[in-house]
């Protein structure tokens, strides 16, 4: 499928609306996770169709790791890597994992994830904030995966996180954004970029995140586990762009009753 047919107007919007994260400027506001990819071919096609410039990866024991060819695919796509601390349950584990990721991937950027519950994979707020403070002190650019709590979001921003990344709903659930009001409040509460991370199920969820004021969307399963990952990647790209444009354009107020768009002046008597 061609990804070169996006309207020129969108390209102009992108040029005038850069996404600045951790001091770097991105054209794309879609961050893609690699977890759940069915094949390297599907990964490569999805990365290209998504237009993403920032892709998450993980570290595991070498026996359980991907072969080198996943990295070859990502290197060839020219994307920046964002290591995560997935699977960590304490600040101590997360800080150690981030240090290892910095060594392996040669980046001090980290998607900080500290999980507090096995069934829901919800973040552990206490350990998360502790880890964020330690990693910021060590010079990491910390993108913190968090709940949609605006107060915790503010604490993470105050701790020096480069971005606050609230969940829409639990990781991999595809339940979309369960509390849009909180996401909007969180967006108002912090001055750093807000990236909606986790829970996206389909394109309209990604568009809603952007309409709520999020600066970007991070998703994995919605693309990698879709029947057609490449096509869903393009759908997400266009949804993120559409949602961003709608946010910038300013939506009309909601009204209880109708507001005619056709003038009643000059209405004939028939």
């Amino acid at each position: 499928m061609s990804t070169q047919d996006l309207a020129p107007a969108l390209a102009r919007e992108e040029a005038g609306d850069p996404f600045v994260l951790g001091g770097e400027t991105f054209r794309s506001r879609l961050l893609l996770g690699t977890g759940g990819v069915p094949s390297l071919e599907a990964l490569e096609a999805a990365v290209r169709a998504s237009g993403t410039q920032l892709v998450t990866v993980a570290l595991r024991r070498v026996e359980a790791s991907a072969t080198g060819s996943m990295m070859t695919v990502l290197d060839r796509a020219g994307v920046r890597l964002l290591p995560n601390t997935a699977g960590c349950r304490t600040a101590r584990e997360a800080v150690r994992t981030a240090r290892l990721a910095r060594e392996a991937f040669g980046t001090d950027w980290v998607k900080l994830e500290v999980i507090g519950d096995e069934r829901t994979l919800l973040p552990d707020a206490v350990e998360l904030l502790d880890a964020a403070e330690q990693l910021v002190a060590e010079g990491f650019t910390v993108l913190a995966y968090t709940t949609d709590d605006p107060v915790l979001g503010r604490r993470l921003a105050d701790a020096g996180c480069a971005a606050v990344m609230p969940l829409g709903s639990p990781i991999g659930s595809g339940l979309g954004i369960r509390n849009p009001h909180n996401v909007a409040l969180l967006r108002e509460a912090v001055d750093v970029p807000v990236v909606l991370d986790a829970g996206i199920g389909t394109a309209s969820d990604a568009a809603l995140a952007m309409e709520l004021g999020c600066d970007a969307v991070l998703l994995a399963s919605a693309v990698t586990r879709a029947r057609d990952p490449e096509r869903m990647a393009l759908a997400m790209r266009q949804a993120v762009e559409g949602g961003r444009l709608a946010r910038l354009a300013g939506r009309i107020p909601r009204r209880w009753h109708a507001e005619a768009s056709t003038s009643s002046e000059g209405l004939p008597a028939l």
Binding site: G33, G35, R60, N84, A86, R96, E103, F105
Partner: peptide, 30 residues
């Protein structure tokens, strides 16, 4: 034993009996 050994130090870092070592590599992740 929980601490990162930088790549630049691998060749001159001897292992000791009883060490717990983790050797990690990239994998897909969200």
């Amino acid at each position: 034993n929980g601490d990162v050994v930088p790549r630049s130090s691998w060749a001159r870092t001897p292992l000791a009996p009883g060490d717990a070592v983790e050797v990690l590599a990239p994998t897909a992740g969200g």
